Computed example of a mutant assay.
Amino acid sequence: MTANAQPHITDQSQKSSPWVHICQVDDLVPDSGVAALVLGQQIALFFLSETQQVYAIANQDPASGASVMARGILGDLNGETVVAAPLYKHHFSLKTGRCLENEDWQVRVWPARIVDGQVEIEWV
């Protein structure tokens, strides 16, 4: 999968586990975001190469309504790992989804993990 390709998961009905396989970790761009369509929801996946951690948040920016969060810039503000939304540069925590500049805004987050080189999110 290239940086422009998007994983596409459509059916969770056959699974007994809440964890949904999204892609291989090698499909992700280190220290950047990739968009995926998972069960009808646009997800932004971020892979931090230094910690080997993956994060999953909603791809829609609450400020603009555009599905662009995967194109945001990763950073750290006061010890919190964040993504700066590309249009208005609001910072969202990758752990909680809260906006650091506007307490009324939040993006959904999903627990994410890497198992045997596979990226999974917990779909609950």
Rank of each mutant, 00 (worst) to 15 (best):
Ile57Arg: 08
Thr81Lys: 10
Ala63Phe: 09
Arg113Gly: 01
Gln6Tyr: 00
Gln106Met: 14
Phe46His: 09
Ala35His: 00
Ser16Ala: 11
Pro30Ala: 05
Ala35Val: 04
Gln6Ser: 13
Asp31Trp: 02
Ser16Asp: 13
Lys89Ser: 01
Ala70Met: 08
Phe47Gly: 01
Ser17Arg: 08
Gly72Ser: 04
Val82Met: 11
Val124Lys: 09
Glu103Trp: 08
Val38Lys: 03
Gln41Thr: 06
Ser16Lys: 12
Trp110Pro: 09
Cys23Ser: 13
Ala58Arg: 04
Trp105Gln: 15
Leu39Gln: 11
Val109Arg: 15
Phe46Trp: 05
Asp76Tyr: 04
His8Gln: 09
Asp31Met: 12
Glu120Leu: 15
Ile121Ser: 09
Ser13Glu: 14
Gly75Arg: 05
Trp19Pro: 06
Ala36Glu: 13
Thr51Asn: 03
His91Phe: 02
Glu122Val: 00
His90Arg: 09
Trp110Leu: 10
Tyr55Ile: 01
Val109Pro: 12
Gly40Met: 13
Thr96Ala: 06
Asn59Val: 02
Cys23Tyr: 05
Glu122Met: 06
Asn102Ala: 06
Gln52Leu: 10
Glu122Tyr: 15
Leu87Tyr: 04
Lys89Val: 01
Val83Thr: 04
Asp26His: 07
Asp61Gly: 05
Val82Gln: 10
Ala66His: 10
Ala70Asn: 14
Ala70Ser: 15
Pro86Ile: 11
Leu48Gly: 00
Asp61Cys: 14
Val38Ile: 09
Ala36Arg: 12
His8Ala: 11
Asn4Lys: 10
Val115Tyr: 01
Trp123Cys: 03
Gly117Met: 08
Leu39Asn: 13
Leu45Glu: 04
